[in-house]
Amino acid sequence: MIVNDCWRNSHGDCALQPLGRLSFQPLSENPLLGPSASALDKMGALRLTFLTKHHQIWRLFTCAWLHAGVAHLIINLSSVIFVGIHLEQEFGSLRTGIIYMLSTFIGSLVAALFLKDRPSVASSAALFGLLGAMLSGLIQNWKFYTKKFTTIVAFFSILMINLVLGLLPYVNNFSNIGGFISGFLLGFVLLFNPQLEQMAQNKGGLFDYNVKGSAIVDLRQKLDRPVLRIVSLVLFSLLLAGGLFAVLHGINVNRCCGWCQYIDCVPFKWWSCNEKPMQCETMEIAGRLTLTCTGYDKFRVFPFTDISQARIQDLCTLICS
């Protein structure tokens, strides 16, 4: 929010104004209590023109560490902590970390295939990777869980909350889908051998096993399914290679899928999902800036003129939407 500086760029027209420079853009501009579109662009969000025309491939990495707003940050981090701690207790930090990082990158690749000309962030891809791994772990180890109902409720609650969050502006739901598929496949590759001795000593978690000491060796043999692991690894490799090939060759799936846009952002009266570049006529009179949307009978007068061209484009999009 320091980069955004709503108090200066919007001259006080902000949400939670007492925060000053740390205040947020109006909810009509960002319903997640976050920065403006131009601020997200500046910090490294994904956008179609930056990736295809300016070839800023580095945004595939930076977008994965950005959140669309405070609401997105709180929900995403709390979900990651909840799921990540339990997976780490069950399978160890190394395997959980590998799934986290690879799912993040795959999510960014999938997001790039469905990009619109509006900023989007892909930080939730890592969470969905952990959720996908959680699902594959459930499938492999189902009969040994003692808290089946609790685990299912927790899984679907976190999944649905974050999927709905992905329907709001700036949060890329396609990165979530890509991260989930990646985590699901990697779960079959890596989550074949729970830390049963440690789990037996650390009861009370979400993933408790009903395992006796003498059955540990036999259980590990049942959980280690080499064929399934190899098939999942091959599918993950194809997903990674195909995603890289498609992104580097500028393939955009939206050109042949008109309804796909509604998976990523659903328009509502409180916000817009419009991606078309808007143009406004500007006029400065007596310290006031008048923006008139070209082709529409819409205009707005602002009591300031000293703002950047990028911020003018933000306001123009807001007026014309």
Rank of each mutant, 00 (worst) to 15 (best):
L87C: 09
T104F: 04
T104V: 06
F105A: 13
F105M: 14
A133G: 15
R118T: 13
F114L: 09
G137T: 07
A112K: 11
S136L: 07
K116R: 15
I106T: 12
G84A: 12
A122N: 07
V83I: 15
G92C: 07
I106D: 03
A125I: 01
A125K: 03
S136T: 10
F82Q: 15
I81S: 15
V121R: 01
S120H: 05
A112V: 10
F91Y: 12
V110K: 06
V121P: 06
L94V: 13
K143S: 14
Y100T: 12
I81C: 15
Q89I: 02
P119S: 01
L131S: 04
G84H: 13
L94A: 09
S93E: 06
G97E: 02
P119L: 02
E88H: 11
L94Y: 02
V83P: 14
T96R: 05
F82T: 14
V121C: 01
S108A: 15
E90A: 12
T104N: 11
K116C: 00
D117A: 04
F82S: 15
L109V: 11
V83D: 14
L115S: 04
R118E: 08
W142Y: 14
E90H: 05
V83N: 12
A111G: 07
E90T: 13
M134V: 05
L138A: 11
I139M: 13
I106Q: 07
V83T: 14
F105T: 11
Y145T: 01
Q140A: 10
G107H: 08
I99A: 04
V121L: 00
L131H: 00
G92F: 03
L113F: 07
A112I: 11
E88P: 05
A122L: 04
R118Y: 00
I85Q: 15
S103E: 02
Q89A: 06
G129P: 07
L87R: 06
I106H: 04
A111K: 08
F105P: 11
F144W: 15
A111M: 10
G107R: 07
A111R: 06
V110H: 05
M101F: 10
F128G: 02
M101L: 13
G92R: 03
G129S: 02
L94G: 01
A122I: 02
M134G: 05
M101K: 00
G92E: 03
G129A: 04
A126N: 02
S123P: 00
F82E: 15
A122G: 02
G107A: 10
E88F: 10
D117N: 14
S93P: 02
I99R: 03
S124Y: 00
N141W: 12
T96F: 03
G97H: 04
F114Q: 00
Q89Y: 12
Q140E: 10
A133S: 10
N141H: 14
G84K: 11
Y145S: 08
G92Q: 07
I139K: 07
Y100G: 06
A122K: 00
I98P: 03
